[in-house]
């Protein structure tokens, strides 16, 4: 589903190379996890895939179902089925959460040649998904992420994911800033979306999120490359031994 080949990425403003040849393939129905120390390039990878400004791809490719996504605008990538759950969801004062999600859903529908969803159908859909994430009406009415706690912001990300139903979900450090209960809630939300047609890429620093979202494949990223790939046991090894030992092992 998501194919990343030999991806090299520089920061535009500085002469700095962040990704130095990433190879990664996420199949439909699978959950891949990327773990790695701070500064290894995990978040850069997620931003480059989502189409954020400020990065320059110098080599390599990334395709979604065989289609090159790197030349697309962020909104085109989203319409193609790519979703990034942000590490730091952005606060947007003055734009209501519902308005935001409805605009997004209808924009994506339009891009696919579908009619707009009616206000009633949309309300029903959001309420149903929000209930499973224990989000009340108040949170839906407020401006996007404004005044939300860390946990609420992450739940709002998962809500958007549930409403937009993307085929490839990238979760960037979704566990950061979450207590155990909030993490469980978020993980349940993600697990509810797991199905045969959908791929997941879960980026995390710690193993603990992977207790709740069980990965099929675990990759270790270091200094802009995937240095090791294995099964779920690899996450446990990281937890036990830390990144330094693994880096030493593959060096």
């Amino acid at each position: 589903m998501l194919e990343i080949k030999n991806l090299h990425v520089d920061l535009e403003d500085e002469e700095k190379t962040i990704l130095k040849g990433v190879d990664l393939s996420v199949e439909a129905g699978k959950v891949h996890a990327i773990m790695g120390p701070n500064g290894s390039g995990k978040s850069t990878l997620s931003y480059v895939l989502a189409g954020r400004d400020g990065y320059e791809v110098t080599e390599g490719s990334a395709t979604l179902d065989g289609v090159d996504i790197l030349d697309m605008d962020p909104e085109e990538r989203a319409a193609a089925g790519l979703f990034l759950a942000f590490q730091y969801p952005v606060e947007i004062p003055g734009v209501g959460n519902m308005t935001f999600m409805r605009t997004a859903v209808n924009a994506q529908r339009k891009a696919k040649g579908l009619d707009e969803m009616s206000a009633t159908d949309f309300l029903k859909l959001v309420r149903e998904k929000a209930a499973t994430l224990k989000m009340d009406n108040e949170m839906l009415k407020r401006p996007v992420n404004v005044g939300f706690s860390g946990g609420e912001k992450k739940r709002n990300e998962i809500l958007q994911m549930a409403v937009l139903e993307p085929k490839m979900c990238i979760l960037d450090e979704t566990d950061s800033g979450l207590d155990v209960d909030a993490m469980k809630l978020v993980a349940e939300g993600v697990n509810a979306l797991r199905n045969e047609g959908r791929g997941f890429l879960v980026i995390t620093h710690y193993q603990r999120l992977l207790d709740h979202i069980k990965p099929d494949v675990v990759h270790i990223m270091s200094e802009g490359r995937i240095v090791k790939t294995g099964g779920p046991e690899l996450a446990l090894q990281v937890e036990r031994e830390g990144y330094e030992d693994i880096k030493a092992e593959v060096a």
Binding site: A50, G51, R52, D53, D73, P74, E75, R77, A78, A79, F83, L84, F86, P89, V90, I92, F100, M101, T103, A104, V105, A107, Q108, A111, V144, Q160, L164
Partner: peptide, 10 residues
């Protein structure tokens, strides 16, 4: 970027 990443055109 947040809005665009959700599919809203620029």
């Amino acid at each position: 970027f947040y809005l665009r990443a959700r599919g809203v055109p620029k």
